[in-house]
Amino acid sequence: MVHQYQLNGYNIVLDTCSGSIHVVDEVAYDIIALFPDKTTEGIVQAILNRHPDVPEKEVLDCIAEVEQLIGQGQLYSPDSFASMAGNFKQRSGNIIKALCLHVAHTCNLNCSYCFASQGKYHGKGGLMSFDVGKQALDFLVSHSGDRVNLEVDFFGGEPLLNWEVIKRLVAYARSLETKRHKKFRFTLTTNGLLIDDEVIDFANREMNNVVLSLDGRKEIHDRLRVDYAGNGSYDRIVPKFQKLVRARGGKNYYIRGTFTHANADFTNDIFHMANLGFTELSMEPVVCSPEDPAALTPADIETVKRQYEILAQEMLKRQKAGQPITFYHYMLDLTGGPCIYKRLSGCGSGTEYMAVTPWGDLYPCHQFVGEEKFKLGDVWNGVENTALREQFRSCNVYSRPQCADCWAKLYCSGGCAANAYHATGDIRGIYEAGCELFRKRIECAIMLQAAAAEITEEA
């Protein structure tokens, strides 16, 4: 399967199954498009009609080049992965390598669009005790098999409302590393209100990544991210974020925003973040029911797709000016990206990745917490709902018939089970709007790679 598109002056050809990416001129672009349906003579005739200035010999040379790439398995390569799709998860058995620790089901903000219903996940509020957290870490280590790299995200609600427990859990995990031959990578996701010098010092010493919630422009951020008195939080958190990021050397963090119907023109918020001095940026579409006033409409989806293109073009400008910014979804490592087994198996929710509630209950990921039928078990007894785990184990890009003809399937790996469930009622469903946005992001990300290669070549 081949996908061709033109963006920002680049003609790009993706070969889905080999992962090959080609940047071509207009003649090659047209030849590749004609290749499956026409004979060599037919292609030559069509190209000479369309590009009368190109000598016939050059057309034949280009056809030979295309044939060579096909022979090398880099164009129109066959899809031979269907039989491998479940292998990695089957081979991994019941290994778990990552936990999202919900250390606080409560929050000091009252954001109306919160997927976690103001941090309580449609249930009661509460904080995780050290004993529950310690048991969760023991559960993770004892189920991690031969995996060395383990990941723990301190999440909520607002995790800083349970700061003392976080510090003790980090210390406990560190005490296990040498004797159990494990390496913990910690992430902290916070709204920033409780950041102080002690949090900055500890986070910059122990957290491999911090995710800082900021929606961009003050009027956008303060419209929804308010405290229980209705006051916006922008003025209180921005200086704290700037101080934390400076102390961190400007690395290993993300400013993470959410865009809604109110700011489908979200690039203005990203550029605002950049103007505040932040360079590592992530901006995501809101996750909510279609009836919610914050929900993106079909018209918004078209706006957002155009915004992704504007963002890519602006990033290119800033890169050339020596002031680059990083957008999470545009980070593609073309030489050291995930292997095919990872691409076939997806994010690992419900199998190698689980969320833990403050009371020790296990869910397939943070977005399923609070939906009782998705409870997998708990950190004392392990996974008891094995049928549910098997459903998630069988969840991959080849288990979704709608993905069969999608050129982006080995980039998205079938997408997010939670988004699919909330959109269709089935974890193996398809969240169409999410797919559209994902494909546009990948097109933009690859265009940026083509531009970067050109800049390197010129240098």
Binding site: G19, S20, V23, C62
Partner: peptide, 9 residues
Amino acid sequence: MKRIKTLAT
């Protein structure tokens, strides 16, 4: 004349 540049496999 090479009209195709391969960026990645």
